[in-house]
Design a protein around this nucleic acid. Structure first.
Lengths: 122, 122
DNA sequence: CCGCATCCTGCACGATACTG
DNA sequence: CAGTATCGTGCAGGATGCGG
């Protein structure tokens, strides 16, 4: 008989959610929001220069829909909107940090592996 | 003055690597290899029914190139190949497990967030 | 200031057929 | 058994322009 399995096997639900959370830009957005606490739309744009406004909108909407980010209308005329990390998003951020840390630590090793592979493959 | 920053800010290198490691199928492949230790090509196909053989080949090559997976030719005629997790891949697996665990734990919460969002948005 | 609508392009992935 | 080759396609994401 087996106890609580520490390794849940991946399912479609996992993939779907992770796809929405680890997509090209959500990482950057979460990263920035976590670092600065709360940011306006155009502050985010400036903080992530490479992002287009369409992609930023999409990422924010997706994150908001999944409950990771809160969208707060501060005022209108001129309209001002603030985005901040929702509580559940904090936990995710820890995981993302772990991924970033791991990546940073192992990048050199990965580089060497690539060189070895490419040398053989040509 | 600030000490060693525990939150490395995301860079292009991070994204590039994570893109290759967290793509649609690599997660499944790593998952299976970690669970069974070593698997043959067609064993992997059967273990991940939804994957096409082209995608499996691509995922394996990418993981191999990045040093996450080792490809071992066991015999030829008939040719037999074994794939197994490389040491550095183990650490990654721990992170992926954490992601899966987190996802599992928070899926209900995310579901509710989505329903709330969709109710408002229509 | 904060977006949405539209058009366009590349690329990931699937389907299918073939080979050592 | 373990792949390669080729073709077709959906969709994420860039560029650009407009609107409350």
């Amino acid at each position: 008989m087996q106890e609580t399995d520490p390794r849940p096997t991946i399912t479609g639900q996992h993939r779907e959610l992770l796809d929405q959370l680890l997509d090209k830009w959500s990482l950057h957005v979460l990263d920035q929001l976590c670092e600065h606490g709360a940011l306006r739309f155009n502050e985010l744009r400036r903080a992530i220069p490479a992002i287009t406004q369409k992609s930023l909108t999409a990422a924010l909407r997706r994150l908001e829909r999944n409950g990771m980010v809160e969208r707060i209308v501060v005022s209108d005329r001129p309209i001002a909107v603030e985005y901040r990390i929702a509580p559940v998003g904090q936990g995710l951020q820890d995981l993302i940090d772990a991924l970033l840390l791991w990546t940073t630590a192992h990048l050199p090793e990965v580089e060497r592996a690539r060189e070895r592979f490419d040398a053989v493959a040509g």
